[in-house]
Structure formats: C-alpha cells, structure tokens
Design a protein around this nucleic acid. Sequence first.
DNA 1: GATGGATGTTGACGATGCCAACATGCGGGT
DNA 2: ACCCGCATGTTGGCATCGTCAACATCCATC
Lengths: 208, 208
Amino acid sequence: MVKAVEASRGYHHGNLRDALIDAGVDLARSGGPNAVLLRAVSRAAGVSHNAAYRHFADQEDLLGTVAQRCMTQLSLLMIERMDLVQARTAARRARSRLEAIGRAYVDFALTEPGWFRTAFTSARPHTAAGDVDQAAPNPYALLGAALDDLVRTGVLAPHARAGAQYTAWSAVHGLSSLLLDGPLRELPQADVARAVDAVLAGINRSLG
Amino acid sequence: MVKAVEASRGYHHGNLRDALIDAGVDLARSGGPNAVLLRAVSRAAGVSHNAAYRHFADQEDLLGTVAQRCMTQLSLLMIERMDLVQARTAARRARSRLEAIGRAYVDFALTEPGWFRTAFTSARPHTAAGDVDQAAPNPYALLGAALDDLVRTGVLAPHARAGAQYTAWSAVHGLSSLLLDGPLRELPQADVARAVDAVLAGINRSLG
DNA sequence: GATGGATGTTGACGATGCCAACATGCGGGT
DNA sequence: ACCCGCATGTTGGCATCGTCAACATCCATC
C-alpha cells in the first residue's frame, strides 16, 4: 500500500509527524505561535510528551514547520480569490488579480489572526536547511506572478517591476499588521474597509 | 526633594516599578518579547520573584508596559532624524521630513529588532485602561504631523490626507516587518537599501 | 525467526507564572 | 511622639513547560 493514512493506534503511531503538525496548526489557529507547545501537540495527538522529539529537534523546529503550513493557508486563500477574478481585457484582469490577492492577504490576517501571527513569528529562518516543501505555494511567489502578468500586459514597465514588488508587499503586509497588532487595532469596520481601499488604490497608483 | 532616584536598598526598594520596567526594556532589547519574564526582571532588579505582582497584574501587563516604552524609543529616533532635516522651501522640508521619518522607522526595526518586535507584540490592547502615558510621543502621531505639514505646504491635497496616512504607515511598517521577519529577512545589504528607496519613493509618488 | 535501529514511554530536573500566607516598615491620624 | 494600617517585599508551594537520559516496543531486514 502507499501509506497508512489512518493512524494505527498501537505502540507506534504510524503517522505521528503529520499528526503533530496538524495539532500544531490547530493550536496556532486559536492561540497563535505561543500556543504551539510541544506537550500540547503531543497531548492532542494522543501520544506521550517527548514523542515529538523523534520528529523535531526542539519546540522552535516544530513551530517553524507549523509556520510554513500557516503560510500555505494564506497562499490557498490568495489563489482562491485570484481564481474568482473575471475581466474583459488581459490588462484589467491582471490589475484585478493583484487587487484580489492584496485583499485576500488582509482578509486572512483579520479572519485568521492566529495563523497570520504564527506565519510571521519568524523565531528562526524557518527556511531551515533541509525539507522545505518546495511544492507548497508561497504568498510572495504569487504576488510576484501577479506582477509578472502586469508587465506582460503592459500595465507595468519592466524596469519598475522590482520596486513595485517591494512596494506592494510592504503595503499589504504592513496594513495587515497594523490592523491586527498596531494602532489600527480597534478601528471600526467601516474605517477598516476604507483603509484597505486606500492602500490598494495607492498600490495601483504607484504602478503608474 | 523631588523623588528618590537612587533606589534605597532596604526592605522596600523605593522605585521598584520603574526598575522592573527598565529591566524589561533591557531584556526586550536583546531577546524580544519572549525574554520579558516576570522572574527575570525581578532578578535584574535585585528583588525576589513575586515582588512584581505589587506593580503589575501579570506578565502580560508588564509586557504591555515595556512595549509602550519600546514604542517611545522608536519615536525618539524618528524625532531625532526629523530634526536633522534641512531644506530651502517649506514644501521640500516637509517632504524630506516624511522621508526621514520613514527611514528612521525601518532603521529602528533593523538595528533594534528586539525592541521593534516587542513594540508590536500586541498580546493585548496595551493601550489598556488607565495610565497610558499621554505625554510620550507616538510614532503614528509623528507620521500624522508630518502629513499635516505636507497638507499645510500644499504638497498633499487635503482630501487625500486620510488615505495617504494609511498608505504611508502601511508601507513603512510592512517593509520593516518583511525585512525583519518576512521573506526579505536575509536580503543582502545593498538590496535592502534599494528596497527602502523603492518603498519611500513609492510613498512620495502616491502623495501626488 | 532473530536482531538492530527507528519510534514511543517513563521519570526527572530546572525554569516559569501565579496563588497564599507571612514579614516589614512608611506615613498618617491621634 | 506614638501607634497602627496598608502598601510593599518575601517565602514557599503548585502546575506547566522544555529538555535530557534511560528504558520499552516493534518493524524491517538478513
């Protein structure tokens, strides 16, 4: 057979690493990075503390792995929203896609604060040596692809692409952070919408 | 006399709250928010664990207070850099001041990562009820004042001010975060400078 | 079938946050 | 001047966490 997906519950779990990561993702969702505890994930996986040490060097290692999964969740929402975009011309489509991506980014931060904070908890270069899942979609690769499309459709001048990338990333990520943990924390919902519109419009304008 | 600055070291410390906060700021500087521990600050203040509970409800309370001090540090650097700006016309001066503020923001994040992370550790609305030091300068108030100057000097149209505020805050904060904990983490120094220039130029352009 | 290495378990140690009970001494009221 | 209350510190203890060491189990390979 390919692999025992359903965990056999004998002495050996059979699929513990994934189970631990899943538990970590759950904990991160509700409690953020500080909730991703070695003993807690072990408990959730129905296994004894210390079992995790056979799969992760230490808590930081686990957290880094969970953080990557959170990044992937962000990517999934971005892709989903991007695929919904429809437009006449290729140029308009590229523009709308970029906006959809940006909006997804902010929405993710606001609707999944635990995941968002965990994804950027950094702790360490969670692009650690070894098994970074290269196949997993990356939020910034998606943003980059959207910018490539803008260049392809003539909206964005090729020489401006590099700068636009930094500008777009920064604006969208910064807004998300400020709304979540910054001085915009308790902004009324209507103002939030206005702020998002303003920032996305600013990005659009800065594209030329 | 005004106040016993030098701590009298009897049974009662005499100035414990401030001593604990200072110790917390030190720990935050080198270790970030996770290093601001109740027992550690007590130790640093030469006092027994639990003494801190006479001045802070819990660790989160202490951390929030320390976070505010970190915010103030950021403000101080911004003010310092802003005051260095010289320019012929009032308009150019206002523009240069905004840029100086933005650059200071990013520089602070990169040179004082522990403080920066602590300042935005949020944990809870560290604008808790009660004694928020209103006199302390606020990074966003400074940014707001700089934008006001741009309106006053005719660089920025009044109706565009609100949007510009969100745009500028987001861009500068987002860039800082991405350089510190995001995918731009290990960017070579030359590219960092380019990215900062690009984002600041983008802000300037978005002002019209 | 035996056996070795991968996987899980048990137990322990130090550190942390927080609670309860106790100690100290400064400052205000008489 | 005295005394006593209450803010401030201390001691001790508990539950939880990360991590190490020693041990148990079982799957795969010969």
